[in-house]
Amino acid sequence: MLLLTPGPVQTHPSVRAAMAEDIAPWDAAFRPFYTRLRERIRAIAGGVEGEHVTLPLQGAGHMILEAAIRTYVAPGGAILIPMNGEYAVRMARLAREAGREVVELHAPDTRGITPGEVAAALAAHPECGHLGMVQSETGSGIVNDPAAIGAVVRAAGRRMILDAVSAFGALPLDLAAQPEMDAVVFTSNKCLEGLPGFGFAVARVDRTEQCAGNARSWSLDLSDVLANSRQNGMGSLRFTGPVQTLRALDVALDRFDAEGGRAVRLARYQANAAALHRGLKALGLKPYLEEADQGPIVVTVHQPAGLVLADFVAALKRQGVTISSYFTTEAPSFRIGAIGDIGLPEIAQVLRAVEAALAELGLRQAA
């Protein structure tokens, strides 16, 4: 079965095979491995040794994002969130339920937020000490530019938290050039092509130290993760996690390096997304985004008249392809991931599967 969701993603057999080992995370032999893995991740983020640190936390992307909000935004503090997709909606909910004030900056889910919009909102809301932004919205496929938006945040003297869960390892990011960014958060899956199980923040050391006590949660306190590392060493875990995931991630990072790193991986994903966008359009389907706004992570398509999403997903499975079984866009849609251990041959396979599924359901003419 070919897995073409925007996460979890299709992984290489060698990555999956790395899970087949019992590991004792408290064993001395594990410590140098874990230390090295954290350094590899910091380097991909463009972090600077001594200024930035990788802070792992077991769980899903929502958990590491909530931990970042709780850690870096003081209790009762306010955060400005550009609202141009479902994952921004989720960020806002995480912040509100953590007791932080949220100011929403609304924009269509068909384009990225602009620096001018952010600058105006920050000027209108001096209470917002932070901006929280999703880099890649996997509902529609748009991309928000952290470098351009970060420059505005920096000029306004504010701080930034970046949700790069579906972007890290492919889309550009350089923490060394963005001192306004408290943390970028992501997971072991998605564009790193590992398996789910761990979230990571690559964060500023000074800010993490300054924010001790903000989280009001032991589990979701990144300053406590840093304090544990200081006390027990960078090879130590606070609590038992799915450490086999870390072994798999290490193998995935070996593959990342062998492929040529972030820029080469991005080029592969861009080629996948472009082929999907063109191919689905050639089948008579209407992409959710214009080609100029199409990001490299996921391609979203308006549902043709008469399509029942559950039936379409089941028909695709009969063709050997799995896609997301739900949509999060403002208009009904379906989405196909362009990331993971796939290339143009797999994209051709999924286009054939879509055509066959539509024909099976009697929707080829409707499309």
Rank of each mutant, 00 (worst) to 15 (best):
R278W: 11
R238V: 08
P242W: 03
S217R: 01
R247N: 15
S223F: 03
R216F: 03
R268L: 15
L276V: 06
L222F: 02
S229N: 12
R268C: 14
R262L: 09
L253K: 12
A227H: 03
V251G: 02
D254C: 14
L283F: 01
L222R: 00
A267D: 06
A282H: 15
D250E: 05
N272L: 13
S229V: 06
F239A: 09
W218N: 06
L222E: 00
A273C: 04
P242N: 04
G241L: 05
R238I: 12
G233H: 11
R247G: 12
L253D: 08
L226K: 04
A271T: 01
N228S: 11
P242I: 02
L220Y: 04
L226H: 04
S236I: 14
G261Q: 08
T245S: 05
G233F: 05
V225Q: 01
Q231F: 00
R238Y: 06
R262P: 08
N272S: 07
G279A: 04
R278I: 09
H277E: 06
R268E: 13
G235S: 10
A273W: 02
R265E: 10
S236P: 10
M234P: 08
V243D: 11
G284E: 07
W218T: 07
L249N: 06
G279P: 01
V225H: 00
H277V: 08
D254H: 10
A274V: 02
G233C: 09
G235V: 03
A267F: 04
N272A: 10
R247K: 15
K281S: 15
R278Y: 12
E259T: 08
M234E: 10
F239I: 11
R238F: 08
Q244Y: 00
V251S: 03
R255L: 15
Q231A: 06
V264N: 06
S217K: 02
R255T: 13
M234R: 15
D254G: 14
R262I: 14
G260A: 10
Q270P: 08
S219H: 15
L222M: 04
L222W: 00
H277G: 10
G235C: 08
Q270H: 05
D221H: 01
T245M: 03
W218H: 05
D254K: 10
L220S: 01
R278D: 13
R278V: 14
A248V: 04
Q231Y: 01
N272H: 04
L237T: 14
D250F: 00
R278E: 13
A271S: 04
D257Y: 09
R268M: 13
N214R: 03
F256G: 09
L276A: 05
Q244S: 07
R247Y: 13
N228H: 07
N272E: 11
D221N: 07
L283N: 02
A258Y: 04
R230W: 06
L283S: 02
L283D: 03
R268A: 15
V243Y: 07
A273R: 03
N214T: 01
S236G: 11
A282D: 12
R216K: 10
F239W: 11
G260C: 09
D250K: 00
V225F: 03
S236C: 13
L283E: 03
R268V: 13
M234W: 11
